[in-house]
Amino acid sequence: MIKLSRIAALALLAIIVFATLSPIQMRPHIAPANVERALAYVLLGLAMALGFPNRLYQTVIFVVVIAGVLELLQIIDPGRHARLIDALVKAFAGVIGIVVGQLLVRSSRRIGEK
């Protein structure tokens, strides 16, 4: 499960990097932008939490830094814009995914103890 979660996290990170830094016309559109951002980072946070269950603080730092850095890198593309609110939505959603993942890990440990 851990190995699969790490592979999923890496794949999600690649998708997020592509969607964040590619020209706006190449970015996939499946829902309103804030919903897409939040969903992508919730899934990333969840996969990271399941893939690295004993590294809570490092996982939180990684997801929050990735959200901020990728948002800042949008300054390079004239057709994109870097906004603080977008970075905050991404970081908050990533942390929510991590919390959910940690809850799943802890409850599975409790079930395994019984």
Results as ranks from 00 to 15, higher is better:
1 M>I: 12
1 M>S: 14
2 I>P: 05
2 I>D: 10
2 I>G: 12
3 K>T: 15
3 K>W: 13
4 L>T: 12
8 A>P: 10
12 L>A: 05
12 L>Y: 06
13 L>N: 05
13 L>A: 08
15 I>E: 14
16 I>V: 05
17 V>C: 04
17 V>S: 00
19 A>V: 06
19 A>F: 04
23 P>Q: 07
23 P>N: 09
23 P>F: 07
24 I>W: 12
24 I>A: 15
25 Q>G: 08
25 Q>H: 03
25 Q>F: 14
26 M>P: 15
26 M>E: 15
27 R>Q: 08
27 R>D: 04
27 R>F: 06
28 P>C: 01
30 I>C: 12
31 A>I: 10
33 A>F: 15
33 A>W: 15
33 A>C: 15
36 E>I: 07
37 R>A: 03
40 A>K: 07
40 A>C: 03
40 A>Q: 07
41 Y>D: 04
41 Y>Q: 02
42 V>Q: 01
42 V>A: 03
42 V>S: 06
42 V>Y: 04
43 L>R: 01
45 G>Y: 01
45 G>F: 05
45 G>I: 04
46 L>W: 05
47 A>S: 08
48 M>I: 15
49 A>H: 03
49 A>K: 01
50 L>K: 11
50 L>W: 12
51 G>Q: 09
51 G>M: 03
52 F>C: 10
53 P>E: 03
54 N>I: 10
55 R>I: 14
56 L>R: 13
56 L>H: 13
59 T>I: 00
59 T>D: 06
59 T>G: 02
59 T>F: 05
60 V>C: 06
60 V>A: 01
60 V>H: 01
61 I>M: 14
62 F>G: 12
62 F>V: 08
63 V>R: 02
63 V>N: 09
65 V>I: 09
66 I>A: 11
66 I>T: 08
66 I>G: 08
67 A>N: 04
67 A>Y: 03
67 A>M: 00
68 G>N: 08
69 V>H: 01
69 V>W: 09
69 V>E: 05
70 L>R: 10
70 L>S: 03
72 L>V: 10
72 L>W: 14
73 L>D: 05
73 L>H: 06
76 I>W: 09
76 I>L: 13
78 P>R: 01
79 G>T: 15
80 R>T: 07
82 A>G: 02
82 A>H: 04
83 R>L: 11
84 L>N: 05
84 L>A: 02
84 L>V: 11
85 I>S: 13
86 D>T: 00
86 D>M: 02
86 D>N: 04
86 D>W: 00
90 K>V: 11
91 A>N: 10
92 F>M: 13
92 F>D: 11
92 F>H: 11
92 F>W: 14
93 A>F: 00
93 A>K: 00
93 A>D: 00
93 A>L: 00
94 G>R: 00
95 V>L: 02
95 V>N: 03
96 I>D: 02
97 G>W: 00
97 G>H: 08
97 G>V: 01
98 I>D: 09
98 I>S: 07
98 I>L: 02
99 V>D: 10
99 V>N: 07
100 V>D: 10
100 V>I: 11
102 Q>V: 08
103 L>K: 08
104 L>P: 12
105 V>A: 04
105 V>R: 07
105 V>D: 11
106 R>E: 13
106 R>I: 12
107 S>G: 15
109 R>I: 14
109 R>L: 14
110 R>S: 10
110 R>G: 15
111 I>E: 05
113 E>I: 07
114 K>C: 11
114 K>D: 10
114 K>Q: 10
